[in-house]
Design a protein around this nucleic acid. Structure first.
Lengths: 132, 132
DNA sequence: GGCATATTCAACCAAATGGTTGACGATCTT
DNA sequence: AAGATCGTCAACCATTTGGTTGAATATGCC
C-alpha cells in the first residue's frame, strides 16, 4: 500500500507562482539552459549534450522550467522541442519592478525577441537537431 | 558529538551570486519582508511581528536576504535595522533582461526610490519602531 | 518485426532548506 | 546590579532538491 495521499501530490505545495519562477531561476544549470534556448529551440537530448549530467537530470530541469512558465515543450514525433516562454520571466520581472507596486516593466528587446520566436511556432527549419 | 565540520560550512556552496539572489527571492516570506521594507526600514523584531513564525526563523531569512544583497542590516545599539539594498535586485534584473545578453534595465522608479532611501542613511525620524 | 533513438518513470540517495526550541551574549532600563 | 529586550547560536527535525541508475514507453528507421 502506498499510504493514503497518492492523488496528485496535493500537499501545501508552492502556492505562489513567483515561488516557482524564482526557484527555477536559482539554479545555474537551468539558467544556462535558458541561455541556450535563447539562441535556438532545442530537443531535450541536445539541451543535455553540453552538461556533464544525466539526461534524466536535464529532463527534470526542463520540467521545472516548464512549470515555471519559463520554457514550453512540444512533442513532435519522438522529439520534444523546448523553446523559451516569456510568461514566467515576465511575471518575475513585473514583481521585481518594485515588488509589484510600481509600473510593470516592458521587457524591451527581450520580449520582442521572444514574440518573434513564438510567431515562428517552433519551426526548426534552420535548426540542426540530429547530429549523427 | 558534533561530527567534524564545524568550521565555516565550507562545502561547495553556491558559487554564482545569481543563485543566491534568485533563491532568496523564491521564498514568499522573504518577498513579503522585502515588500515591508519598501515602506519603512525596520528592526528585526518588527519585521518578524506579522509572521506566524519564530524570531529565529525571521532572523535566518534576513541573513539570507543580506547575503543576496537584497537588504542591508545595521546594528544600532541593541536594535538591528534592516533596509532594502538595491544591488541584489539590480543584478537579478540585469540578468533577466535577456539573460545578460541584452541591454541592462533601468529599474526606473524603484531604483530612484531606493537611492533616496539610501541617501537618508537609515534615519528613522518618522519610523515607529517601539510599540510598547 | 526488430532495433536504435528520445524521453520519462521509479526508486533511491546526499545535501540543502525552512522550520522548531532552548540557551546565550549584548544592550537598554530601572 | 537586576531584569527585560533584541537578536543570534547550536542542535535538531521533516521536507525538498538535485542528482544517480535501471527499466519502461514512444517513436522512427530498415
Amino acid at each position: 500500500m502506498v499510504d493514503d495521499l497518492p492523488h496528485t501530490a496535493l500537499p501545501g505545495f508552492m502556492d505562489h507562482p513567483l515561488d516557482i519562477v524564482f526557484a527555477a531561476l536559482a539554479d545555474p544549470t537551468r539558467r544556462a539552459i535558458l541561455a541556450m534556448l535563447l539562441e535556438d529551440d532545442m530537443a531535450v537530448t541536445d539541451v543535455a549534450e553540453p552538461f556533464e549530467m544525466s539526461l534524466t537530470a536535464i529532463s527534470k530541469h526542463l520540467t521545472i522550467l516548464t512549470r515555471a512558465g519559463l520554457i514550453a515543450q512540444e512533442k513532435r514525433g519522438r522529439v520534444k522541442w523546448c523553446k523559451l516562454d516569456p510568461s514566467g520571466l515576465r511575471s518575475a520581472s513585473v514583481w521585481m519592478q518594485g515588488f509589484g507596486q510600481f509600473e510593470p516593466v516592458h521587457l524591451d528587446a527581450f520580449e520582442r525577441f521572444l514574440e518573434q520566436e513564438l510567431a515562428q511556432d517552433l519551426d526548426p527549419s534552420d535548426a540542426d537537431p540530429v547530429r549523427e
